[in-house]
Amino acid sequence: MRTPEIVFDEVSKFYGEVLGVNRVTLNIPPGITSLVGPNGSGKTTLMNLMAGLIHPDRGTITVRGLSPKDPERLMRVTGYATQYDAAPRGATGFDFVSTGLMLYGYSRVEAAERAWKALDQVSLTGAANRKVAAYSKGMRQRVRLAHAFAHDPEVLVLDEPLNGLDPLVRAETIALFRGWAAEGRHVILSSHVLDEVDVISDQVILIANGMIIAEGQIRNVRDEIHEHPSQFIIRSPGAARIASMLFELDHVTQVKLQDDRLGLLVMTRNRQEFSRALTRIALGGCGIESVIAADENVDALYEYLIGGSR
């Protein structure tokens, strides 16, 4: 019996000097899982690794118990809609899907039948006999989707599948994903924005700079983002007094007095509350010279990931 999960174990991938992903460990159960992260964070790299298009430098991957190094077996249970836009030269939408199917050993007739069915599910039958090169962005997105699921795979890997779709088609596509997930398949999506996928996902995986920064059910991930500690450095002659006042607050997790006793390092889980408290302290007569956010980049990243909607 094959294990039903997709497992990454300490996987690293470098493109020469450039980091693709670093020490990724994941255990993805069936259902809809979204990979969310900004451009260049490593979403496509993870998906290519799953599908065996690239190979890890370190670590191992199994997809429902199969190795990505064995495409003959892996691709029977996997369908991958890549972010690469090109279709084979001169191919029509129908060719693209049906030739893919012929490689599974379907006869010409069976392949045609299945291709039409898949194209119908993405509402592309009308354009099936036109060249893919002449498709609009959204149509190309959909024909890739049809190519990925035409052979009825257990694992669907879809790189930014909602990108470029109009609202109506998007709703239809999401309904497809939900249907597949309900049948116990893996549906792995990627997106730039958490808001785009959070309501439809069973799990989300946040990724930045090639590292997994949070994973789990959407509620937990959101909490984790909200509560991620921010660090500030405060300079004040009355640093010691401010330290004792801050220490009383619930959302402050750590306060450290610097050696010169004129500076403080503060960690808080709620920046809004924290800034209100600082205002109170300042009005109370403690001279505060400066407040600096210690790790602005990380803050900005989290803000970005949840779409700024705190």
């Binding site: 065996g52 495409p71 003959e72 077996r73 836009d85 090109a86 279709a87 030269r89 893919g100 599974y104």
Partner: peptide, 16 residues
């Protein structure tokens, strides 16, 4: 042409 992945995603050994 950026089309090689089409073949790599087929259920075929690379040798095939």
């Amino acid at each position: 042409d950026k089309t090689l992945h089409f073949w790599f995603l087929a259920p075929a050994r690379r040798e095939t």
